[in-house]
């Protein structure tokens, strides 16, 4: 009798799990884990080797085999047949604490490496483009209409402020729990030295200068050296912690909005953007950036785990590389 009950319970659990994987739609069969109309906005990889990607309409893809096969589920449910868009997924160095940011002021947090997610109270309905965990307790977020947020207690309480002139921020990067940079429209770069409580303008910030490009991604290698990239293929770099920024050759005029990420080798950065442009650049400036176009769809993020790289984008784009980004192939959606 006990064995029978266990079998029944197991079948029930498997069926629930299957339902969670297949989602809400009866006709999902036959489409695979990614559809031609999906927009994927962010991808990351954990120290454990697990890959995660989020996108429009609450899509969360996960892979445990280096990005060859993925499973699909939906988060951030708005109602029956409706989910909110998810824009970014980032984990702290422990590989357990992670945050997803999305539209409608959504922040989801995980403490178990992405197995389960819980929605946090943010008190805002702005678009949250990036949530960056600094450690298990500290995290910062950037979003539309001047939104800058921080937490010091693992997201139990989020504090927010509206930056001057309501300038939208697209990305934020921290080198330690106190020092961080946020980039946004009108070539704005702001810096915080107190973990996000206050921000000082380092560049841009003037809405009247509407011809200045928007910066959509920022990365800092250390407290002094950082790069920002954005509209019109613009890349700028700093060697003094953001006090001054100089242009860096990108060899493209297409918008770069995929996050600047370190490459497999220590002195490279990768950024991607409009019309499938993918750029590998040197942090030292020793070599000219290498521009490739593995696809015509917009690429929104790229990530590497050793020589394996994954880049995601619009139109169901999910590409994988096994040679450090030299060549890319579409992942077959099964």
């Amino acid at each position: 009798m006990l064995a029978f009950a266990i079998v029944i319970a197991g079948a029930a659990i498997l069926s629930i799990g299957h339902a969670a994987t297949t989602g809400e739609d009866r006709d999902e069969a036959g489409w695979g884990f990614v559809r031609p109309w999906d927009s994927l906005y962010s991808v990351t990889v954990l120290p454990s080797g697990k890959w995660l990607s989020v996108g429009a309409e609450g899509v969360l893809l996960t892979s445990s085999d280096s990005g060859k096969n993925w499973s699909r589920q939906r988060l951030a449910k708005r109602g029956d047949l409706s989910w909110y868009d998810l824009f970014s997924i980032r984990f702290a160095g422990d590989g357990k604490t992670g945050y997803i940011g999305g539209e409608h002021g959504i922040i989801l947090k995980t403490d178990d490496g992405g197995e389960t997610w819980a929605e946090q109270k943010t008190g805002t309905q702005e678009l949250i483009f990036r949530v960056v965990p600094v450690d298990a307790q500290h995290a910062a977020a950037a979003g539309s209409n001047g939104l800058l947020m921080w937490t010091e207690d693992g997201g139990q309480n989020w504090h927010s402020q509206t930056f001057k002139n309501g300038i939208t921020f697209f990305d934020v990067a921290f080198t330690d729990p106190r020092n961080g940079w946020a980039v946004g429209e009108f070539a704005t770069i702001a810096h915080t030295a107190d973990g996000g409580k206050t921000w000082q303008l380092q560049a841009g910030g003037d809405r009247s200068k509407f011809r200045l490009p928007a910066y959509m991604t920022v990365i800092f290698k250390d407290a002094q050296h950082g790069w920002a990239a954005g509209q019109g293929g613009v890349i700028v770099g700093t060697a003094d912690g953001g006090a001054s920024w100089k242009p860096v050759t990108s060899s493209t005029d297409l918008a770069l909005y995929a996050s600047l990420v370190p490459g497999p080798s220590g002195d490279t950065l990768w950024v991607a953007g409009d019309e499938g442009v993918l750029i590998r650049m040197s942090t030292t400036g020793a070599v000219t950036p290498v521009v490739s176009r593995p696809t015509f769809s917009s690429l929104t993020e790229v990530a590497f785990a050793g020589e394996v790289g994954v880049t995601v984008g619009t139109d169901g784009t999910l590409l994988r590389s096994e040679d450090g980004g030299k060549t890319w192939h579409a992942v077959e959606s099964k």
Binding site: S39, Y41, A56, D85, F87, E103, Q125, E126, L127, F129, S144, T168, F170, E185, P213, A214, M216, G230, Q231, A255, Y257, D274, S298, T300, G313, T314
Partner: peptide, 13 residues
């Protein structure tokens, strides 16, 4: 209208 940022391909607020 928002710099071709793909995440803005969402429903206006």
């Amino acid at each position: 209208f928002h710099y071709s940022e793909p995440e803005y391909a969402s429903i206006p607020g």
